[in-house]
Design a protein around this nucleic acid. Structure first.
Lengths: 332, 332
DNA sequence: TTGAAAGCGATACCAC
DNA sequence: GTGGTATCGCTTTCAA
């Protein structure tokens, strides 16, 4: 009771299977007459080609994977980041008529599955998102012989193809803004130092301070989570009670820091200016609204997809760094 | 320069292709000796079966789709809902060794693609999320001959298989709480009335008020967005200046309502109590923290996936309604 | 328990 | 421009 095959279509249209196939794949060299008959047969029979059969012979799957490794569930769910990236990706993929499959690398088993998929030619290309420093996915990737695009440059290596936000430049701008508005004892709460984005933001912090010839030793280490930031802010207050500004490497951390500041009787921005990074929607609703660095998240998705589409189709592509920009609101 | 085929594995192991296949698929009737040889060959050759070839003969794809239709981009990206559901789904699918492909129904073209996929036997089953009342996906679904699971009951129809949160019961609890704490002039800001969840929450509101013999005419219609809620709250204040409580059918709307309330000099909860629905993370950080109805979002994902896995494997499954519960915080 | 051979449903090459 | 045929890589029946 299977669906119609191309053979049946050909039969009904009174042409050969070869001709039917040509019509369906929009090839040239078919008479208008034959084309029309085939098209009608396709319509009447509700024929839809079997992708499995097609893939088998073409060696293509018209499918790419988005792999998200080392998912911090909290990060994943509490942040529009992933949804937004996916939306961007989908937009481009739809246009290129490619399908998207999702691989979340939460467990070792999941990683194995990804590994298998990479080599079972189930997908024509892969996008990798948010890898930590020593991510086991790296080794998989090297063995793969299909195009890979990194979302966010991984730490310590320079992949052939990645797209990233200008983390360092954004952080630099943010801290320069602090300096420009008169702050002198500027602290930072960093992200996890095994992620390139976090390291880059930290470097941007030092860049700006160096240019201004200010001290850059007021640092506490966080991991992008609110909990880590609360602890970090408390530590900062303890070690540097005179600080007059803090640059948090993520909005979530800035929010947590602001709560700790408030709990300690420091006013924002009067006593302590606060700048975040990400510009997630919630930043707008903090009080005062958070001054932060805007990242083009959706563009990250579209550009990753665009790059992968190019590679899959055998066209070259070069890595990209997307600009970030400071959004000044009430907190600094 | 293709990857090894099963034929090469068989050759290397010194057995027939049939035997190699049996070993790889864990069938019985293979001697321990043959099994071991094949396994070693697989290992040495780094053999991974071609899924396309396998699908062609088995008529299965070991892949299911998650279709999200009519995506309101703002809703999609500003809310952990989708990420959370996906996380739940992935967890179950990983266990069942099924792959997940994503279809966002933002455009007409995307819908066509889904339609095609449904009939090109590319997926063994489909999960449909968050459909509006007259979603064109409905007609596709009827024509499909593969299992379908709805996430959230669609409005006006009773599909064979769906899993939903207890929207009506949750709303009832929320409003009953308002009544219990002495509120008498209770208003509501609804969600879009072409979505079952929104209608159900509205009904829950009326249930509770009916039971308490209170008036239920203080209603303004929103669409789950903050903007709509701001307008709705303003309207409510204008038409019913004496209201002492408002039940917003979504946290995002509750947050917007609280801002409007504050702008109009009403204190929360002293003058006006506010209850939301969803219990998204940000609810915690409103001031005062939002009293709201918690939805088991992740469970929604796992149960949808579990149900689909059962159906795909030919086992029966019955629709599910997951309990919601009131979380009392500062706003009511 | 094992081997040989027949498909699964398409594409693509080669003559005509 | 069109038809016939080999082929993609696997599973599965049928005999042995």
């Amino acid at each position: 009771m299977g669906r119609p095959t191309i053979e049946e279509v050909a039969l009904r249209a009174g042409v050969s299977r070869g001709t039917a196939s040509r019509v369906i794949n929009g090839a040239a060299h078919v008479s208008a007459d034959a084309r029309e008959k085939v098209l009608r047969a396709v319509d009447e029979l509700r024929y839809v080609p079997s992708r499995a059969a097609r893939s088998l012979v073409t060696q293509r799957n018209d499918t790419v994977a988005l792999a998200i490794s080392n998912v911090d569930p909290r990060l994943f769910s509490d942040h529009p980041f992933f949804s937004e990236v996916i939306l961007g990706i989908d937009e481009v993929l739809a246009e290129a008529d490619l399908e998207l499959t999702l691989v979340l690398g939460t467990s070792q088993a999941a990683r194995d599955r990804l590994s298998r998929r990479l080599s079972s030619r189930r997908v024509d290309g892969v996008m990798l998102l948010s890898l930590h420093g020593n991510d086991p996915l790296y080794s998989l990737v090297e063995h793969a012989d299909i195009p890979i695009v990194f979302g966010g440059k991984p730490l310590g290596i320079e992949p052939d193809h990645y797209v990233d936000a200008d983390n360092r430049g954004g952080a630099r701008q943010a801290v320069a803004h602090l300096v420009r508005t008169g702050r002198r004892r500027i602290a930072t709460i960093t992200g996890p130092q095994d992620m390139d984005a976090a390291v880059a933001r930290f470097n941007g912090f030092r860049d700006a301070l160096g240019e201004a010839r200010l001290e850059d030793h007021r640092v506490a280490y966080g991991d992008f989570s609110e909990a880590s930031a609360s602890a970090a802010m408390a530590e900062l207050l303890e070690r540097f009670p005179d600080l007059d500004a803090v640059f948090a490497a993520a909005d979530a951390m800035a929010a947590a820091a602001m709560r700790v500041l408030a709990a300690n009787g420091r006013r924002v921005p009067e006593d302590v200016a606060v700048v975040g990074f990400d510009d997630r929607p919630a930043a707008l609703h903090l009080s005062p609204p958070l001054t932060t660095v805007h990242q083009p998240i959706r563009a990250l998705g579209t550009e990753m997809a665009r790059m992968l589409v190019a590679l899959v189709n055998g066209r070259p592509a070069t890595s990209l760094i997307l600009p970030t920009r400071l959004v000044v609101r009430g907190s600094a």
